[in-house]
Design a protein around this nucleic acid. Structure first.
Lengths: 342, 342
DNA sequence: CAAATTAATGCAATCGGTTACAATACAAGA
DNA sequence: TCTTGTATTGTAACCGATTGCATTAATTTG
């Protein structure tokens, strides 16, 4: 009940050598099938469990992957993690998860912890203010694969899994244009971050496609928080030339903003048509329901993890030259429908 | 750049013994302060990192805690995890996180993995259908602390951190009664689960306090999913004697139900006043905004983790006799206000 | 029937810290 | 001066699984 059984105990009981026991438990081909069965049975009977530390010490593999995310308590991130966990769990990898709380300093500390824990690989979605790569280069130099997802850093030796933010930005904007909007405001995050920068590119492309000029006053870089949503509504209310369309790069922020606008008497979508981003549950419960971009979080988690494991197995090395791009999708709901379908 | 530095390397370079190096790095009092500095500097210079496996192998401690939750992608759970992570991270513990996907079978498998990974302690919020304790008793018999949170199993050797679900149920119901509701429906989960069973007790107590009898047809045990929310609205629509109040044990489910009711022409709160549970972001963006119970997830995560670590340090053993109960709070919003405040 | 294979198992070193038990050096006390 | 004490550092045996290199037994080949 109390004492741990080791392969030495098993060996002694069965009058075999520890080496044979070890090999049998690892299904080594050189061991007689009957012997394997014998050992396996005894091991089960005595409640033997492999000491992973001894094993890791010897093999220099940990079967553990590190994951660093900006925040755990976001619907999107936890969905991604759920996807990762499912894949990892299936192939026997453990996950060491930590959050940077959107701070590069904390992210650096987390990376160091992961490094010291000797994770076999690292999956990262970087913090809001991360621009340096330094804390990841230790991994690279030791040949530990680093894979970015969603919020990525571009690096010649790291893979990346993202959605096509440019296309998503284009789709969202194009949809508003198709509904007749001519003065579209884009509320977004830090534009140096790929997810936001790329969406802006799509936004611009859509405008250009309609020969509309870009008004920089209509591009708001915020932190996409709930407060930001309220502030945007306030700002719109103060504007002379008000926008007739609003593309906000986050659903919760968009929902709050929509609510604030409604309180101020604006009709949605009549006065302002709104498109969000993420397909967060909130997008379905606001009224009118929010048009948004479906962001395949679960899929992203699974893909990232599968890619990482492929790399570790050597079956499929990560392609460092090109990021893996997942399809996202515009989901049209009431908050942006100005024209009845014909 | 490539090779790992060990304490033996450091020892050789500095003409000291590995023992001294080891002690110095662990700040052992017997080591000369100057020697410590010397060793620390050299270690930093050469990029030494402790091999945790060798260390764990010897000390039989892993500095890793296991956490099993039903789902990662729930706002509440990810908030709890965020709280746990913050505390654990501060004191140098790592978290091994996995999800049971609401299945006892998977939970059992996860527990086994945790066990084999030799976590120093285990924190669990059990799956929807978990009623047996078997997969945790291995931990107990090896003296590994197990602490339940939110969805708990009651066991003489395990601590627990919960909110006062009975009181919360009472508060929610009492509020509806105070607003004049006389026929309140309670939509909840599996009643054998403490979180739901206790809320029902509170529900009953509130009714009893007003000398109202309990109508079992008004207690609906569902899976609290979005579909369940729609189904409830449908059911209400079919009822002869319709409820004038609705207490739903989950915000998202409540929001969907509210939406479905509105579509069917019911006025909220006029025809049906609604109270949810969790204070999920959705509760703030639905209209009318949803009255709900604030569920201190972050706090729960921090408290659970602090308790666990106190236990591991030996500073403060877990009190197995009584669960730790956190305060929750009724947040009154428009979905349930029938009487103007006087 | 001897030699050569093949199959199965054992020996012993190794991974890198940790720690009980010395050992050494030097200063203070008798 | 000799003893005792104190401060530091060293020696070596672990922790438990893995694996290259034998070794032994069993089978096949010439």
């Amino acid at each position: 009940m109390e004492k741990e059984i080791t392969i030495y105990d098993l060996a002694k009981i069965l009058a075999l050598s520890p080496a044979t026991v070890s090999r049998a438990l690892n299904d080594h081909p050189a061991i007689n099938a009957k012997t394997k069965v014998l050992i396996a049975e005894k091991a089960a009977e005595l409640g033997y469990r492999s000491n992973t530390f001894a094993s890791h010490l010897r093999t220099r593999k940990t079967n553990t992957l590190g994951v660093i995310v900006p925040r755990l308590n976001s619907n999107f991130m936890s969905t991604v993690l759920a996807g990762m966990e499912e894949v990892a769990n299936n192939v026997g990898y453990n996950l060491l998860i930590s959050q940077s709380l959107e701070s590069e300093v904390k992210e650096r500390a987390n990376a160091k912890t992961m490094f010291n824990s000797r994770v076999d690989g690292l999956l990262v979605s970087v913090a809001y203010d991360t621009y340096s790569f330094g804390h990841f280069s230790t991994f690279i130099s030791r040949n530990i694969p680093v894979l970015f997802f969603d919020r990525i850093l571009t690096h010649p030796q790291c893979g990346a899994v993202i959605i096509d933010n440019e296309q998503a930005g284009y789709d969202a904007t194009r949809h508003l244009l198709d509904q007749g909007c001519r003065r579209i405001m884009h509320v977004t995050g830090d534009l140096r971050r790929n997810v936001y920068g790329d969406r802006l590119e799509g936004f611009k492309r859509a405008l250009a496609g309609q020969n509309l000029s870009l008004d920089n006053r209509l591009i708001l870089s915020t932190d996409l928080s709930q407060e930001a949503g309220r502030a945007v509504a306030e700002q719109i209310d103060q504007m002379q030339e008000k926008p007739d369309g609003l593309f906000i790069a986050n659903d919760l922020c968009a929902a709050i903003c929509m609510q604030a606008l409604k309180e101020k008497g604006y009709a949605i979508p009549g006065d302002v048509a709104i498109v969000g981003f993420n397909n967060d549950p909130v997008s379905q419960v606001v009224s009118p329901q929010l048009t948004t971009i479906f962001y395949p979080g679960y899929q992203m988690g699974k893909t990232a993890m599968t890619t990482m494991i492929g790399q570790l197995n050597g079956t499929r090395p990560i392609d460092h030259s090109e990021p893996i791009i997942l399809r996202s999708e515009l989901i049209i709901r009431r908050s942006s429908i100005l024209l009845e379908k014909s």
